Simulated scan of single mutants.
Amino acid sequence: MRTELVSEPGDRARPNEDFASVALPASGQGGALVVLDGVTPPTGGTGCLHSVPWFTARLGGALTELTVSLPDVPLTEALSLAISRTSESHAHTCDLSHPRTPQATVVVARWSARTVEYLVLSDSALLLESEDGTVTAVLDDRLARLPRSALATDALIDSTLRNMEGGFFTAAADPSVAGRAVTGALPRSSVRSLAALTDGAARWVEKFREGDWTDCLTLVRKDGAGALVARVRELESADAEGRMHLGRSKTHDDATVVYAEW
């Protein structure tokens, strides 16, 4: 089995808010990957004493452990348990009801000898490659489908859309949000590789239009996860003011790619 993990901060002067892990249980019968993209809060309070990297490390660590140690528990339940565990660790010091309490997007994939299960929450991506080379992108596109006018200000987003019906959902403090994720399962024999990308890496497709999702996975398989991130950085630097690709809130974003092939 081949696995690769690359995670690069958008700004080396700031901590990387992404989390990524690959776990291969000692039984040798399968594995799992977890990718989180911490949501950078706007200037102002979040109701929490802790940073986004603290949160993603706690949630990602718990989710990795639960996904591997409880192989018969559905991924939605594993995410719910991980959110509960993380919330309990700081509920006594922080206001977890604040709309900007630390939160993250989530991608989880778990494979056994028979199946490949997956979960996607918010705007990170999971790519699944079949035996015939067909690539399927598993996306939670609720945020992308919202009209630009609804996203005019952070205050408007927080009061009407963030973790609300009709808006979009992230993993924050409410365990029930796990039930909002995009989930599914496939026979292991029908999948030969997969890749999880935070939106900072998915810019290659979604913002810069360098190719489609099949081209993206092909690039990672042939040249490595680091090559995808490096190309995104080149494209960002060439368009530092975002004139060609509107909608980028940051010139450079944290970019994470995890790839697994068998």
Rank of each mutant, 00 (worst) to 15 (best):
V106L: 00
T160G: 04
A23E: 14
R114P: 03
A172V: 01
V107H: 00
L127C: 08
G44W: 09
K250G: 09
G38K: 01
E210L: 14
A195R: 14
D140I: 04
G226R: 09
A144M: 11
A178W: 01
Q29A: 15
V52D: 00
R2L: 15
T183C: 13
L49W: 12
S193A: 15
P9K: 02
Q103F: 04
S7Q: 13
V6Q: 12
P102W: 00
S190T: 15
E65H: 14
G211H: 09
T76F: 03
C216S: 10
L5S: 09
S51M: 06
H90W: 13
A62R: 00
Q29N: 14
M1K: 11
R188F: 06
E129P: 05
S97C: 06
P102I: 01
V6D: 04
N163M: 06
A32R: 00
L126N: 03
E241F: 12
L126V: 07
G179C: 08
G60M: 02
S189L: 09
V35S: 04
F168I: 06
E117P: 02
P175T: 06
R162V: 06
G167R: 06
L128F: 03
A172C: 12
L139C: 08
L161V: 09
A181M: 09
A260F: 11
E261R: 14
E261P: 08
K222S: 12
S27E: 11
R221Q: 13
T93S: 10
